[in-house]
Write a protein that binds this DNA or RNA. Structure first.
Length: 575
RNA sequence: CGGGAUGUGGCUCAGUUUGGCUAGAGCGCAGCGUUCGGGACGCUGAGGCCGGAGGUUCGAAUCCUCUCAUCCCGACCA
């Protein structure tokens, strides 16, 4: 492609609304433009990068035996009501009505549609397993879209769904997808990690997320430094260091006045105690029912864990009004002793201590010397708190490290969740009806482009890894008014194209400085410079965008010299 | 949905506090000339109902009310 006939509107300055580096660079490099909040147009260069990602995914999916389909973006409400997600999915689901007043939505994901399709098609176990995928635009009406392509409302996703006749088959499908994802991300040249994850709104029994490691990530990963355990912070397990055999005797509890102590810090300061002596009581509205959750004062409750423990559909922290109604006390004074709430769940860690300080369910008062077993009725103990770096690895007791990551892929084992609610069955070998065992697999295609840039950039601009670069080579002709330069640039351009090496020829009538700045900004891995001075010396200059390393390739033996140089650049990326 | 902020040429922003000539700058864009190895320079020019509606006033980018949009923080979320 010749730049003079291409469209790469680069900018010197980034728009004021761009916050993260990938967003700024995507806009400055002329790859995307914003239409409205969380919705972007891909310009030619950006679209090529997007398609690079898509092409690798297609190859890996096809190699893994998945079949590409394309499903509708507009979906009828009936299907979502059938699966139960019409109510569950919430405002993220963009709902709409057609001219006949029929309800529908824009597809944020396609479990309903694919299940509906296959329950009508698949009659026999002989037709299974099936694994279908698509690369398609999704719409999720995010509360707060941000960071450009990292968290858009409209985005491109690769979503795949597997259907198996039994658990074993489903596990195999899951493993195959896990392996395919791993290969795909490796091929893209991304530094990533697969971590255990919560299955969230998609539902299902277990799942892994693929995280690109970058400081700007919105997710936190807890990874073991000794073994290969890694999990999303919202999922990472806390293991007890061993339950003590006997706890010291705890004196009878008493009520003490603690005026104006609304927070754990207040209480600590007032009673001159550390927060680890306090039991924090948090009230939640779980599907309309009050629930109390207890964690140590210095710990953070993990709402995902609580939600899973309660098996709740909708879980919200109680409003101040609800707190007052349920605890009969102002906010900050709820406690488990005598609390008129049916379900009180406590973090496992509370089994390891006694003689606690808790709220007294009356204003300006706390209980001291509380023994939970003796003084409160706890309905269950469970792992409810968020891990910290001081917790041991739940697998090997090694040290955990917290790092930031960008979620670019997610594999779920769904099991029978959708096949049951939507009656997707087939006849097995014995002629009996069985539910299909499902899995689903998503990759944020457009998010990968952003994540790739977050991970690969410098002060001058993007540094594309070769597999995702819109073109591999930027061929810069500095002497467009000199025949020798034009001839040499054209010759190299033609040769590269003939070799199947994708090249963008900068043949614009611009000053060298402008061309160099643009070249670095758009970040193609290899830069070749044809200039009059160098040409007179019989050389063409080459630059490795990543390292900044330059080489002088002799005109006489250009082809061989280039091939060798290129190999070196590529090898630099795989090390 | 709570809290905070911003809307002025394609982009970055002044001007708004204290209302007053024809609304400015830099970048970008068009033309001409000089330049030509790391975002050149000169001259000329195009481009703005100052987010929108209503109001106050002799007079509104500037003050008031409403509204729309966008961004940031939080809650939420593959």
């Amino acid at each position: 492609m010749r730049w003079s006939r291409y469209y790469v509107p680069t900018l010197k300055e980034a728009p004021a609304d761009a916050e993260v580096v990938s967003h700024k660079l995507l806009i400055r490099a002329g790859m995307i433009r914003r239409l409205t909040s969380g919705v972007y147009t891909y310009l030619p260069l950006g679209y090529r990068a997007l398609n690079k990602v898509a092409a690798i995914l297609r190859e890996e999916m096809d190699n893994a035996g998945a079949l590409e389909v394309h499903m509708p973006m507009v979906q009828p409400a009936d299907l979502w009501k059938e699966s139960g997600r019409w109510d569950y999915y919430g405002k993220e689901l963009l709902r709409l009505k057609d001219r006949h007043d029929r309800e529908g939505c824009l597809g944020p994901t396609h479990e309903e549609v694919i299940t509906d399709l296959l329950r009508g098609e698949v009659r026999s176990y002989r037709q299974l397993p099936l694994n279908l995928y698509q690369i398609q635009t999704k719409f999720r009406d995010e509360v707060r879209p941000r960071f450009g392509l990292m968290r858009g409302r409209e985005f491109v996703m690769k979503d795949g769904y597997s259907f198996d006749k039994d658990e074993e088959g489903a596990n195999q499908s899951y493993k195959a997808m896990f392996a395919a994802y791993t290969r795909a991300f490796q091929r893209m040249g991304l530094r990533f990690r697969a971590v255990e994850a919560d299955s969230g709104a998609i539902g299902g029994s277990f799942s892994h997320e693929f995280m690109v490691l970058a400081t700007t990530g919105e997710d936190t990963i807890a990874a073991c430094t000794a073994c290969d355990y890694a999990a999303n912070l919202e999922k990472a397990e806390v293991t007890l260091a061993g339950e003590p055999v006997s706890l010291p005797e705890c004196p009878a509890y008493e009520t003490v006045a603690t005026p104006e102590t609304h927070t754990v810090e207040d209480v600590c300061a007032f009673l001159k105690l550390g927060p680890e002596k306090i039991v924090k009581t948090l009230l939640f509205d779980a599907d309309g029912e009050p629930v109390a959750a207890l964690v140590r004062g210095d710990r953070e409750l993990n709402e995902i864990k609580l939600k899973n423990q309660l098996n709740a559909t909708v879980l919200n922290l109680a409003t101040p009004e609800q707190v007052v109604a349920w605890s009969k006390a102002p906010v900050g004074f709820a406690g488990p002793v005598g609390l008129a709430v049916e379900r009180i769940v406590a973090d496992n860690e509370l089994l390891q201590g006694t003689d606690w300080v808790t709220g007294a369910n009356q204003g300006d008062a706390h209980h001291v010397h509380v023994d939970l077993k003796r003084d409160a009725s706890i309905s269950a103990y469970a792992d409810l708190r968020t891990v910290t770096e001081s917790d041991p690895c739940p697998r090997c007791s090694g040290k955990l490290e917290l790092t930031k990551g960008i979620e670019v892929g997610h594999v779920f084992k769904l099991g029978l969740k959708y096949s049951k609610t939507m009656s997707a069955t087939f006849l097995d070998e014995n002629g009996k009806d069985q539910h299909m065992v499902m899995g689903c697999y998503g990759i944020g295609v457009s998010r990968i482009v952003a994540a790739c840039i977050e991970q690969n950039h410098d002060d001058a601009g993007i540094v594309f890894p070769p597999p995702l670069a819109p073109y591999e080579v930027l061929l810069c002709n500095l002497g467009i008014k000199e025949d020798a330069c034009n001839a040499k640039a054209d010759e190299i351009y033609t040769w590269l194209n003939a070799q199947g090496i994708e090249v963008l020829l900068d043949d614009r009538n611009e000053r060298p400085g402008v061309k160099f700045k643009d070249a670095d900004l758009i970040g193609l891995p290899i830069q070749l410079v044809v200039g009059a001075k160098a040409l007179a010396k019989g050389i063409v200059e080459a630059k490795d965008r990543r390292t900044g390393e330059r080489a002088e390739l002799p005109v006489d033996d250009f082809e061989a010299a280039f091939i060798a140089w290129r190999k070196q650049v590529h090898e630099g990326w795989t090390l």
